[in-house]
């Protein structure tokens, strides 16, 4: 474990070195990322700031914003490594880069995930955190040490759930040689996890909870902070759902690796 931390720490250090050598590029994309995050947020703010819409299916504007900010945090952590899964089929399978991964005495999935990082996502992490704190003030939520701990655990869990889902989707590339893969439509599905789940119909609610558990990315864990009943069990199930997701993802991944065909030489 310590060995793995050292190695992937070294990977990160190397990545930073190369990234820092293109400084302007780094700052430009950081700013761009903050803008993208802020635009998405403004959409929600304006949508619910009209005279008529002050609540969404029983959820107040501040609550919706709180969940939205919460989701941005998990997603920022997710997208800091997900950049490697994006285009996995093309880069690793079709171009055969996965050979190199398999030749190292390290976990193959960890190598893919930690090969490069998307540091710009720190921008949306900050926007998300600010949104959450702003909404918390309106709602009169006081945040203690324990709450901070929960925020930490649950947002990591949320990111792990997202990563696991996309690892499963990427594993499909081992079986069908295809440049794009099946993941892209699911990137859009992530946004379902930014809203209170009860605004969707029952089928979608079920899917978002137990099939593609995006509701555990922000909504369920965020209810910890609200004065509402009915979600207590699901809320604290979040770390467990993350754990199960990892196991499922690992099984899919391992099966995929055993079917890897490599490209001809």
């Amino acid at each position: 474990m310590i060995y793995n931390l050292q190695i992937f720490g070294a990977y990160f250090a190397q990545f930073l070195k190369t990234r820092m050598s293109y400084r302007t590029d780094f700052f430009v994309s950081l700013v761009a990322n903050i803008l993208v995050g802020a635009t998405g947020l403004l959409f929600v703010v304006f949508l619910m700031d009209g005279k008529n819409i002050t609540e969404l299916n029983g959820w107040s504007r501040a609550e919706v914003l709180f969940i939205y900010g919460y989701a941005m945090i998990s997603m920022a952590i997710f997208s800091s490594v997900a950049i490697n899964l994006y285009g996995f089929g093309n880069r690793y399978i079709i171009q055969g880069q996965f050979d190199r991964v398999l030749l190292r005495p390290l976990n193959s999935l960890a190598q893919v995930l930690f090969e490069s990082f998307n540091l710009d996502s720190i921008g949306s992490l900050l926007v998300g955190l600010a949104t959450m704190l702003y909404a918390a003030r309106i709602l009169g939520i006081s945040i203690g040490m324990l709450d901070v701990g929960w925020l930490f655990v649950s947002s990591i869990s949320g990111a792990v759930i997202l990563i696991s889902v996309f690892v499963v989707l990427s594993s499909v590339s081992f079986h069908f040689e295809d440049r794009i893969g099946i993941a892209p439509p699911f990137y859009n599905l992530i946004s379902f996890g930014r809203y209170p789940i009860t605004i969707f119909n029952r089928v979608i609610q079920f899917i978002l909870s137990w099939v593609i558990p995006f509701a555990f990315v922000a909504f369920y864990p965020a209810t910890h902070f609200f004065n509402r009943t009915g979600f207590e069990l699901l809320c604290y199930l979040t770390p467990l759902v993350a754990l199960v997701s990892v196991v499922v993802a690992w099984v899919f991944w391992q099966f995929g690796v055993s079917k890897y065909e490599s490209t001809g030489n």
Binding site: D99, L102, L103, S258
Partner: peptide, 8 residues
């Protein structure tokens, strides 16, 4: 590739 553990 089989000898080096890449292919099963």
């Amino acid at each position: 590739k089989m000898l080096t553990g890449i292919l099963k």
